[in-house]
Simulated assay, not measured.
Amino acid sequence: MTSGSLRGRTIVIVGAGPGFGHTLARRAAAQGATVVVAARTVSRVEEMAEAVRADDEVRRAGGTAIAAPVDATDPDSVRVLRETVEGHTDAVHGLVYSAFAVPSMKPLARTDHDQISAGIDLSVLGALRTTQEFTALLEAGAAGPATDAADAATSSVVMMASAVIHHSRERYAGYKIAKTALVALGHSLATELGPRGIRVNTVAPGYIYGDTLKAYFESLAGKYGGTLEDVYAHTAERMDLRRLPSEREIVDPVLFLLSDAASAVTGQTLTVDCGEFHT
């Protein structure tokens, strides 16, 4: 990814969290994009947008960030988000959907149906609501001039799935159901929206080694004995590269899919997991 490859673009991130979402917002803005960070917690997205705007690299690139609250399970809230974005621009060039529900982590025999429904509502139907609401703006973004890296201008939707789609380990079933459905949604939207110049892809991360995962590993170390490093090494043994991907290593493929360098890529699922699964 070259500096400025998203210059002048508007990128909307729905479900922007303090880890992956913040890193994506900062790095997209550092390439000159206007980034809309959207999530349920108003204070979180406002703090995130302020931090992105204050970043020296972002300032040099001419990027910026806008905070906007949204509840992706509420159609009215998603509509308000679109209206907020329309107040700043008449075209959107990229939409990243990363909102998800924390899985119940129980076998299906003991999983409440309401928990599965809630996961599908946020992870899958939320992605559909958001894409439907932003289709006209994304189509307008695809109508802009192409860079010399592409034969035709396109806009891009990237949905964040999970490498859980590749395994059937006990207790992950509810999460796998939602994320597998999200991949299927991405395939169908790619077919339907392709003629309008809108590309749709999914990224399936494995473990993302950031603060959240570190805290979880520390809890495992305290529960079973050993150290954070022991838990990390044990987990990384399953990866071909014998390590876990960082937040930046998950963000980079997303930035690629948002850029004109991926102008012919649509309907695909990219697994980023340091080689835990071969797909």
Rank of each mutant, 00 (worst) to 15 (best):
Arg79Gly: 13
Phe20Leu: 13
Asp71Thr: 10
Arg82Gly: 08
Glu46Trp: 09
Ser77Met: 10
Ile177Trp: 01
Glu139Gln: 13
Asp76Glu: 14
Val203Tyr: 05
Asp260His: 13
Asp260Leu: 11
Thr269Cys: 12
Ala150Val: 12
Ala29Trp: 06
Ala140Lys: 11
Pro145Lys: 07
Val42Phe: 12
Arg196Ile: 02
Ala190His: 00
Arg7Glu: 15
Ser259Glu: 13
Leu270Ala: 13
Met1Ser: 11
Glu47Phe: 12
Ala101His: 12
Met160Arg: 05
Leu270Asn: 03
Ser123Asn: 12
His187Phe: 02
Arg238Ala: 14
Arg242Asp: 09
Asp114Tyr: 05
Thr235Pro: 08
Val200Gly: 00
Glu237Phe: 07
Gln132Ser: 14
Arg59Tyr: 01
Met48Gly: 07
Arg26Ile: 02
Thr147Pro: 09
Glu229His: 07
Thr279Asn: 15
Gly275Lys: 09
Thr235Asp: 11
Thr2Ala: 15
Pro205Glu: 02
Ser5Pro: 04
Pro103Phe: 05
Leu122Cys: 06
Glu57Ser: 14
Leu125Trp: 12
Ser219His: 08
Gly267Gln: 07
His234Trp: 11
Arg199Pro: 09
Gly210Tyr: 02
Pro245Phe: 05
Leu6Val: 10
Arg129Gly: 00
Thr111Asn: 02
Ile177Arg: 01
His88Thr: 10
Tyr224Cys: 03
Ala109Glu: 14
Gly62Ile: 01
Asp55Lys: 09
Leu122Pro: 04
Ala181Asp: 01
Arg26Asn: 09
Ala39Val: 04
Arg238Asp: 13
Ala173Trp: 03
Ala264Asp: 10
Phe277Ala: 09
Val37Asn: 00
Glu139Phe: 04
Thr266Met: 05
Val200Pro: 00
Arg7Asn: 14
Pro145Ile: 05
Pro107Cys: 06
Val164Tyr: 03
